[in-house]
């Protein structure tokens, strides 16, 4: 888990998230953008700061979107995830009809819908009140643990993640960086 105090360092996060290429990824050049797209669709689920749900799709279709893209059978994936995340009643609503917390839960469901090995959450609680934030982090951790998914989380909320059961393994202060970024690595 990476703790990131300043969002200005997103550029360091993008390559990890597959949203931009690493320079060393020479093998992806050529159709690099599409190769990265394939990588993201199959192996990574995203939970964005603002949820990132598509406003014109219902919660159900938002959750099903990664599976549709991979042409995977839909089954009851959306219902199962929504039930576990407490938004089963909201499946047929549009994101605009949901509270911020419900939207974030829907985003978690979408990130897990196609059972990716990695979920990347970029400050998923930044726009949520503290009470809901703790609940969201606990759900995220619980769900990823249940499904055996590696969670990469970027957040300011150190105390929150400590309370969710994370332990600091190492600290690093990058004095050379003008933003004096602090990187903290935790181990569950």
């Amino acid at each position: 888990m990476i703790l990131r105090p300043s969002s200005s360092e997103t550029f360091r996060f993008n390559p990890l998230a597959g949203a931009e290429s690493f320079d060393v990824a020479a093998g992806w050049r050529g159709n690099e953008a599409d190769a990265l797209g394939r990588l993201r669709s199959r192996y990574i689920g995203y939970v964005l700061q603002y949820g990132g749900l598509l406003p014109y799709l219902t919660v159900r279709r938002n959750i099903e979107l990664p599976r549709r893209l991979l042409d995977l059978p839909l089954g009851t994936a959306a219902e199962g995830l929504a039930r576990k995340l407490g938004i089963a009643q909201q499946l047929d609503k549009l994101p605009a009809e949901l509270s911020v917390g419900q939207r974030q839960r829907a985003a978690i469901a979408r990130a897990l819908a196609h059972e990716p090995p990695i979920v990347i959450a970029d400050e998923p609680t930044a726009a949520i009140d503290p009470l809901n934030a703790e609940s969201i982090i606990r759900l995220l951790v619980q769900m990823t643990e249940e499904l055996g998914v590696t969670l990469i989380l970027a957040t300011h909320a150190q105390e929150l993640v400590r309370r969710a059961g994370f332990t600091v393994v190492a600290h690093e202060i990058d004095a050379a960086d003008e933003n004096a970024m602090t990187v903290s690595v935790y181990h569950v």
């Binding site: 991979l70 042409d71 995977l72």
Partner: peptide
């Protein structure tokens, strides 16, 4: 093979219900 390893057009590892 798990679903996540399936090719783009793949339909391996099918969950119980197929989309009609």
């Amino acid at each position: 093979m798990s679903e996540r390893d399936a090719p783009d057009q793949g339909d391996a590892a099918g969950p119980p219900r197929q989309r009609p």
